[in-house]
């Protein structure tokens, strides 16, 4: 019997693989970190703050995102949005995800057929 701990770890590995794509999907319009996290959570993809906020900075360093400070009546917040390279990367990653998803569907249906 596989323990709950093993399930949690493997499930986390699965989610880790899609964190970047999930974040990029919400950044066609500019959002600040907390707003983005809320948006992902509302769409069923909660990502820990300790993972998401540094990720935004790293993606910006890689040229995938651009950012700017804005003060829309409140405290200054850093807003992130896809750059031109980021939009291209997003398209490619989305295609890869769809391909992977189709493959996994096939594999999982095959797995169900072979169950005893």
């Amino acid at each position: 019997m596989v323990t709950g701990g093993a399930y949690d770890k493997l499930e986390l590995e699965l989610r880790r693989g899609v964190v970047v794509l999930a974040a990029l999907s919400q950044l066609h319009t500019a959002r600040y970190g907390y707003e983005l996290r809320q948006s992902l959570t509302e769409n069923g993809m909660p990502i820990e703050e300790g993972t998401l906020y540094p990720l935004l900075r790293r993606l910006e360093t890689q040229g995938v995102l651009t950012s700017e400070w804005r003060t829309d009546g409140g405290p200054p917040r850093r807003y992130y949005v896809l750059s031109a390279d980021g939009r291209e990367l997003y398209e490619r990653l989305t295609n890869a995800w769809h391909g992977l998803n189709d493959t996994m569907d096939l594999l999982l249906k095959g797995g169900e057929r072979h169950e005893p």
Binding site: E49, R57, R77, R78
Partner: peptide
């Protein structure tokens, strides 16, 4: 190079999280 900027952003984000 990024210390002040990241620190300011981190404090804002943690404050938002705490308020939520």
């Amino acid at each position: 190079g990024q210390r002040r900027d990241v620190a300011y952003e981190l404090r804002t984000l943690l404050t938002d999280e705490l308020a939520a």
